[in-house]
């Protein structure tokens, strides 16, 4: 069985009389280690679909299964556990915590999954937090923000905020990474750098699953699988011989 399966998933929003179908019967399978590109125009339901897979929202109808866990029927409590253990999210709207600096925003996520420390080492609190700090700054460095560690979100440019959000998701080293428009506010050079990092996480090296939502057609070749959404329906779903991020250009 595939790692992620969606069967006839629907999400409706009721607005008085009218019903908006953000997702209208989506069925798909995603294998472990795949890099999936979800592509579609604005309002197609990409974010909504991602929320379903990430356990951030539940469908109105249909079934979502991840690692044979029926996500769509989990209680709020177990959904939390699921998100903690398996998922990393890059939000379309970044959603940084404004009271925390870039570094602290990333630490906050690492804190959650914890760090492995050698039990024979000094396992003191300060030691642990030092490790977390190092790890957080390592990831911020990776996305090119080594010199912006202590900026608050309001003191960062749009693209920089986006990269903090990416670093935060990556730092959790999740089994499934969900990235909503991760390059929307990034220039080509940095954007490609980010995609390279994500590519490295997949089957090719670490066997994690990465799902990237985008409206940029130029990114599509990167995916093992491309899913095209329109008006809440899957209009295209194909696997392909992927092109390495290094070779992308837009």
């Amino acid at each position: 069985m595939a790692l992620i399966t969606l069967r006839d998933v629907q999400k409706e929003y009721r607005l008085g009389e009218t019903i908006t179908k953000a997702l209208n019967g989506v069925s798909l399978d995603i294998e472990k280690g795949e890099l999936v590109i979800i592509y579609g125009p604005s309002g197609a339901g990409k974010t909504t679909l991602m929320n379903m897979i990430g356990g951030l929202d539940i469908p109105t109808a249909g079934k979502v299964t991840v690692s044979e866990i029926p996500i769509s029927t989990l209680s709020a409590k177990w959904l939390t556990v699921y998100r903690r253990k398996k998922i990393g999210v890059v939000f379309q709207f970044f959603n940084l915590i404004s009271r925390l600096t870039a570094l602290e925003n990333v630490e906050y996520a690492i804190e959650l999954v914890g760090v492995r420390t050698n039990p024979r080492d000094e396992s003191s609190v300060s030691f642990r937090s030092k490790i977390i700090r190092e790890k957080a700054s390592e990831y911020l460095d990776k996305v090119g923000l080594g010199d912006r560690l202590h900026h608050f979100p309001a003191q960062l440019s749009g693209g920089e905020q986006q990269r903090v959000s990416i670093a935060r998701a990556l730092a959790k080293e999740p089994e499934i990474l969900l990235a909503d428009e991760p390059t929307g506010n990034l220039d080509f050079k940095i954007g490609r750098q980010i995609l390279e990092i994500m590519e490295a996480m997949t089957g090719k090296e670490q066997n994690r699953t990465v799902i990237i939502v985008t409206h940029n057609e130029a990114i599509c070749p990167l995916g093992d699988r491309v899913i095209r959404l329109s008006d809440g329906e899957v209009v295209e779903n194909y696997t392909q011989e992927y092109v390495s991020a290094k070779d992308l250009y837009w």
Binding site: G40, P41, S42, Q92, G158, G184, H215, N216
Partner: peptide, 12 residues
């Protein structure tokens, strides 16, 4: 206009 197409596909 600051990045007025950041969230948009080519058509939009």
């Amino acid at each position: 206009c600051d990045e007025p197409t950041g969230e948009l596909s080519v058509k939009e």
